[in-house]
Simulated scan of single mutants.
Amino acid sequence: MMGQFSATPSSSRVMFDEEDNNGLVLCDKYLPVEVLIEIFCHVDCKTLLRCQLVCKRWKMLMNHVWHKKTEWTLGKPFPWNDKMPWTVYYLACTKKPYERNLVKNHSGALYMKYWNLTQNGGHQWRVEKPPAGIPELPQTEPLFKDRQTCFATSYEHCTKVQVIILTDEGIHPHILDTYQPPIEVSEWYGCRWDCPAEYQLRVKLLRHDNTKIDEFLFREVLEGEKLNRWLKIAHVFQNYGPGLRRITFEHRGKDRSFWAGHYGSKMAGACVCVRNP
């Protein structure tokens, strides 16, 4: 009769038993756990999200699958423990946040995009293509292999900052709080052959409410043998404690002769790199 519906379950509900083959029999064929994990590792990340909803057996296997897939994707060992949220692995696989530069537009190829200009004195910030009055950027540095651009400052202080939200980049709070992976910050800096200059780098580790956890501050006067050459400053943050969520990378400079034009310090290759935990 139209409008009526009746259904009889094909079988009674079976309770999950870790000792039986539930979830391991596909198309009437038994697959050992090791084989099933290997198959899952070849599945794309979005499909894996659906796979872990299929049954309890598959859900139990998923952390092992995610861990193995993460190590495949990154090409390096990755931490494992029973309490690790699966989202740690998902973010590592999809965003690949480790061992890469998290600073956007590190040398001015996109002019001032992604940077907040907090001081723009004198003749203001400028991007030089290629750098003027100084040798080319080191070709041994991968960041400069196909790019010869740098930021240049003027005769009054020029300061700009970029904020890196680590969770947005794919680094899970569990990794930051539990493993505290080393964080390396670096930059190349220099000045012209004919004018001394000042350079400063300040990097802060911050909690989500912007309270400071740690800070690295470097200042240098570029004169004498430091003229007309590229120098590199680098620092590694370690054992910084729980709560880290964002990093501010701020650099500034000016010339010491108050000359019109861009005779101040030059900066390129700004880098913040979270090492594999």
Rank of each mutant, 00 (worst) to 15 (best):
R50Y: 10
Q52S: 08
T70E: 01
K104F: 08
K69T: 13
S107V: 01
N63G: 07
T73A: 15
Y111Q: 07
A109N: 13
T47S: 12
W125F: 05
H67G: 01
W58F: 10
P79T: 04
T118K: 07
G122I: 01
T94K: 02
V54G: 03
R126Q: 13
N120S: 11
M84L: 11
L61A: 12
H64S: 14
L53Y: 12
G108Y: 05
K129Y: 09
T94R: 03
R50M: 06
H106N: 14
R50L: 11
Q52G: 10
W80Q: 10
Q119S: 14
R100V: 04
Y98A: 02
D82L: 10
P97N: 06
V88C: 15
G122A: 03
K95T: 06
V54D: 00
K129M: 11
S107G: 07
V65L: 08
G108F: 00
Y90A: 14
L110G: 09
E128P: 10
T118E: 03
F78Y: 15
K113M: 06
K46I: 13
K59Y: 15
L49R: 10
Y114I: 02
F78E: 00
Q119E: 12
N116K: 14
N120V: 09
P97Y: 04
R50S: 07
W58S: 13
L53S: 11
C55R: 09
L91P: 03
K46W: 11
Y111V: 11
T47F: 05
T73V: 15
L102V: 08
Q119F: 04
M60S: 08
L91Q: 09
R50A: 05
F78D: 06
T118D: 02
V65D: 02
L61C: 13
T73Y: 03
T70V: 12
V103E: 00
A109H: 12
L53K: 11
L53D: 14
M112W: 03
P79M: 07
V54C: 10
M84C: 15
H64F: 12
T47K: 09
N63E: 10
L91E: 04
M112E: 00
T94I: 10
L110F: 13
W86Q: 13
M84D: 03
N81S: 11
N101T: 01
K68S: 11
K56Q: 08
L61E: 04
H67N: 12
S107R: 05
T94H: 05
G121D: 02
A109G: 09
T94N: 07
P97M: 08
